[in-house]
């Protein structure tokens, strides 16, 4: 599971009002190289929740992203975009869990696939 996916998913348990961002429990992280596309990344910057991405990348052991959302002057820097690229698209949570921030309920991640299915009493 890429952090791109993490940035989009929210806990969907009935009654949960603050389901984003999901916590991360790590068992195994892998890295896969993908092509670098600066225009795509700049466009994604408008859509992602910065803090959630920074925290998630730290959970996966990558601490290179700046704490604060980048200023527009930084956005064009190659160095910054490469870090963003790595955090958003190259890191994968292969085994572990996503954790609902409100209830602590865990959604397992196996073979890189998060399982967001709910039990009957959670719908």
């Amino acid at each position: 599971m890429r952090l791109l996916t993490h940035n989009m998913l929210s806990s969907n348990i009935k009654g949960v009002t603050n389901g984003f961002p999901l916590g991360i429990e790590v068992e195994k992280v892998i890295e896969k190289q993908v092509d670098f596309n600066p225009d795509f990344l700049k466009n994604m910057l408008l859509k992602i929740e910065w803090k959630a991405l920074v925290d998630a990348s730290r959970s996966l052991g990558y601490a290179e992203l700046p704490e604060e959302a980048p200023e527009s002057s930084v956005i064009d820097s190659d160095d910054f975009l490469r870090k963003l690229h790595h955090a958003l698209l190259e890191l994968h949570l292969e085994e572990g869990a996503l954790v609902c921030p409100q209830t602590g309920r865990k959604f397992p991640v196996n073979k890189g696939i998060p399982n967001m299915l709910l039990h009957e009493d959670e719908v």
């Binding site: 998913l9 696939i113 967001m116």
Partner: peptide, 27 residues
């Protein structure tokens, strides 16, 4: 995912019931 592998495609999978998935924003 086997099909994706066969064609050497990189796809992100999520298991969920579409009817009750909750999303943040429009990524």
């Amino acid at each position: 995912s086997e099909n994706a592998e066969e064609l050497e495609l990189d796809i992100n999978f999520v298991q969920c019931d579409i009817s009750n998935l909750v999303w943040r924003g429009q990524i």
